[in-house]
Write a protein that binds this DNA or RNA. Sequence first.
DNA 1: GCAGGTGGTGCATTTTTTGCACCGCATCGG
DNA 2: CCGATGCGGTGCAAAAAATGCACCACCTGC
Lengths: 302, 302
Amino acid sequence: MRYLQTFRLIEAVARAGSMRKAAQDMNITASALNRRINRFEDEFGAELFERLAGGVRLNPAGELVLHHYRATLSDLSRVQGQVADLSGERRGHVSIACSQALLPYFLPRQIARYRAEHRGVTFSVNVRDRAQAEQELATYSSDLALVFEPVYLVDFEVVHVAPQAVNVVMRADHPLARKPELRLRDCLDTPHVAPSAKFGVRHLLDFAARRGTRRVSPVVETESFELIRHYVLHEGVIGFQIPIGLRDPGDGSIVFRPISERDLPPGNLILGQMRGRTLPVASARFAMQLSTALKDYPGEMR
Amino acid sequence: MRYLQTFRLIEAVARAGSMRKAAQDMNITASALNRRINRFEDEFGAELFERLAGGVRLNPAGELVLHHYRATLSDLSRVQGQVADLSGERRGHVSIACSQALLPYFLPRQIARYRAEHRGVTFSVNVRDRAQAEQELATYSSDLALVFEPVYLVDFEVVHVAPQAVNVVMRADHPLARKPELRLRDCLDTPHVAPSAKFGVRHLLDFAARRGTRRVSPVVETESFELIRHYVLHEGVIGFQIPIGLRDPGDGSIVFRPISERDLPPGNLILGQMRGRTLPVASARFAMQLSTALKDYPGEMR
DNA sequence: GCAGGTGGTGCATTTTTTGCACCGCATCGG
DNA sequence: CCGATGCGGTGCAAAAAATGCACCACCTGC
């Protein structure tokens, strides 16, 4: 849609922090860009940027305008989706921000299932931590967010909640593997690998540990859940993960056990969208599929 | 905002039902208009109009696009209002669709009170019957609707409810004026003036009368509540009205009495907005003022 | 005080949009 | 049956708008 070009330019300037840089990014002269911005500010009736010595920065009015633009864009693509839909094409695009735990099994399967029925629908999957995911919704960068223990922000509208107990993952020959359920103190007494602070699993662990006046002191701390799963194979340590990101490989090499609910209540895996927003058809349908899939998914193990 | 011109043209074509007529309305050549429409359809990826022999008509895709445009426009003006607001100006515009009963006393007073504090805010008051008022919200033609007994449509979001008992209005020397409360049968036995079927008051009367296997048979039927109020002065008949549209003139020429709740439950005067829409600041504030004013307003008489 | 960055501007050039004339087509009325 | 009329669409030249280029004034940091 060419008529939104000016907004695209505004966004570019906001991102670049300088008109000249933005002009380069958008393959246009700084002069042309400058004039479009100025003209828009005239028509709109207010300046959008603070003119500083080293460039420009959005002022509050600019923030509002940019938000309006993103909302408009989102609504427009929703309309395009609906139009394609009523011509019987079932086209569209779903963008989802999610936690890492969804990557190995759950999401690939769900996306494949959806695409099996609607070949015209494409996906973008953005891995974000729980804070970023909500930001992603607020800027209309993603339609949906599926995150473990999000930091309830105002704009986050919960679509579905799936409880997930934190599990311990370890090699099958680990001493703790003999018990069907583990106590938190046993885990903390054992050398362990843990995700870094910005993840929900770690947040729950830290919280529960503090309650017992203990501390989580990982031998390896990482941002990658995949690394955790693989690391426990190389050293006799334990890792933490939620069941939706786990699956028994079948060769008996690895096992997982839930941590007792007495020590650690289940966290919530939450599917959400931007509050009050009307989602494109494809996203709305996919969200429904996710909801029912999550309902049937085992909260404990699998 | 010039960049929305194409949408304005689309709207004009939809309204005129023909490109040539729309071109005249918009002071532009039919050729230019035609090309803009065609180009937009190209970019958008779908036709918006059915090309008929005698002109064009919006197809479903076009309806969606037009709705998107109106929503965009509404959001944009909201943003403009907010921007003006944060520069401390308190500007804005409030458009309200309302029933006739609000015209003589309630709305003028409320608007004046609001404008006394915010001189920069302007108003448009559109008198609509209860069906039209909801339509008005759905097309973003009005921000608020204040209607008696609306025909609950899906897009109508209730902001406030104020019960209003139907009152009988008559000259002070009318025989029925002696009773403090009237029965419906007495009213129907007396020559009466009533509003036409599309109004809430009449709807309630018809409903209640049918329950008692009676019929409302007015000697004068009108769309004007003002006419009703004045007509009862000239002939010894009674009229029907809700208390918010009534006020004792003080000279004792006219009186009003409620109809017993046994015969006729109070109707609801409802303040509403388009579902899910974020109102401009001025409209939102005015809606709050209306809510509190309605809460204090007598539901019976005054 | 100079070098390198910024936003803004006058003017010629390029791109886009518009107006005019005209086409093919469907409908309607004699 | 056949013009007359009104419709959407198109080729081409004119008008209007956006752009690129060169340049200005300004600020900042070295």
